[in-house]
Amino acid sequence: MMDPKRAHHYNVEIGLADRLRNSSRAERKYLYSSLYEELFREVPYHALLVLKDQETVKRTGLPELFEVLRPFLNPDTVYAEIGAGDCALTMLVAPHVRRAYAIDVSETVMRGASAPNLDVVLSDGISIPVKATLIFSNQLMEHLHPDDARDQLVNVFAALEPGGKYFCITPNRMSGPHDVSRGIDEVARGFHLREYTNRELAGLFRSVGFARVQAFARIRNFQTTLPLGVVTALETVVGWLPRSFGWRVSNLPILRRILDVQLIATRG
């Protein structure tokens, strides 16, 4: 039997996500913000709000994410994080760069964020109203309506200075679903409106003009870029397996580290 809190969260999020899935492009300019605010009112124990109350230094995963980004940061970097949530990562990055922008659709989850060189920017979910040399998103692409994903990427490309990079991390559909549906449904039904594979998302990146797309992997303390073809070939092999077996294989810790969508796209 499902835990009552989880059941409530599931039912609220599924209902709100269906409204977003069935909305028009014009409606979504307002819905991203309003529906997430409604989710946080209806589910006050949501993980993002719980994390917001924890001290940044104690947050699981934050030090690793900062170490992932460290090689891309220098005093001349203008950093923008889209889908910044409570801005904990952006606040860690801000002292190490010239300027840091935290961009999100929820004023509630960003409230109180403060650090040297940090600007907090409320967005409609698609626009990127800044210029940057490095744009980062973690667990964001899957929250976009499929019809809006390319539009946001067009805006990311336009927001980058020549030679700038977009570093995108999003869960791989093959090991999903990764939202509130996990363990209940076979596909994402909550606010993960679409989960991607490396091949699919790299194709979207190229379609908006990115000159170079590389895969990225971090295993323990070792991290490196990888030829995208290696990762997509592995993805293809796993995709040939029966679905239940392929799901188990793609969730093996080392394979999960390689197959999770972590792409670095460079503007020419």
Rank of each mutant, 00 (worst) to 15 (best):
L65T: 14
H9I: 10
D86W: 07
L89N: 13
D76S: 09
E142K: 04
S114G: 05
R218H: 12
L89M: 11
G246K: 00
E38F: 10
D104P: 10
K165D: 12
V105Q: 03
F245L: 06
S181C: 04
N138P: 00
V130K: 03
R248H: 10
E186P: 08
I14T: 12
I103Y: 07
G203Y: 05
H9N: 12
D3H: 12
T108S: 13
R199Y: 00
H8S: 04
L73P: 05
V97N: 06
L234A: 01
A7C: 08
R19Q: 15
G209W: 15
S244L: 13
S34F: 02
H178Y: 14
H8L: 09
Y79I: 06
R25I: 15
D18H: 14
A149V: 14
L153R: 04
Y101M: 07
T56L: 14
G183I: 13
F72D: 09
G203E: 07
K29G: 15
S244C: 06
S175E: 03
L241Y: 00
D18L: 07
E142G: 08
G183V: 14
S34D: 03
P171N: 08
S34L: 03
I264D: 06
K52Y: 11
D3S: 11
E64N: 11
A158D: 13
C168D: 03
K5A: 15
Q223S: 14
V57W: 11
H143Q: 05
Q223M: 14
G246I: 00
S106Q: 14
V120I: 09
D76T: 11
T224A: 07
P44K: 13
R212V: 02
G176I: 01
A47D: 09
K52V: 06
L89A: 12
Q262I: 05
E81D: 06
F191P: 01
I258C: 01
S250K: 02
L259M: 08
V43H: 12
R111M: 14
R212K: 11
L263N: 04
K5Y: 15
E67L: 05
A149P: 05
T170M: 09
G112T: 09
M2P: 12
F191D: 04
M174N: 12
Y196I: 00
S250A: 13
L241M: 04
E13H: 09
R98A: 15
T232M: 05
V130R: 07
V156L: 08
V231P: 00
N221C: 08
Y10I: 10
G85N: 11
Y79A: 02
R25A: 14
D53F: 10
R28C: 11
E195G: 00
S181Q: 03
H96P: 12
E142I: 05
G268F: 02
L193C: 11
I126D: 04
L65W: 15
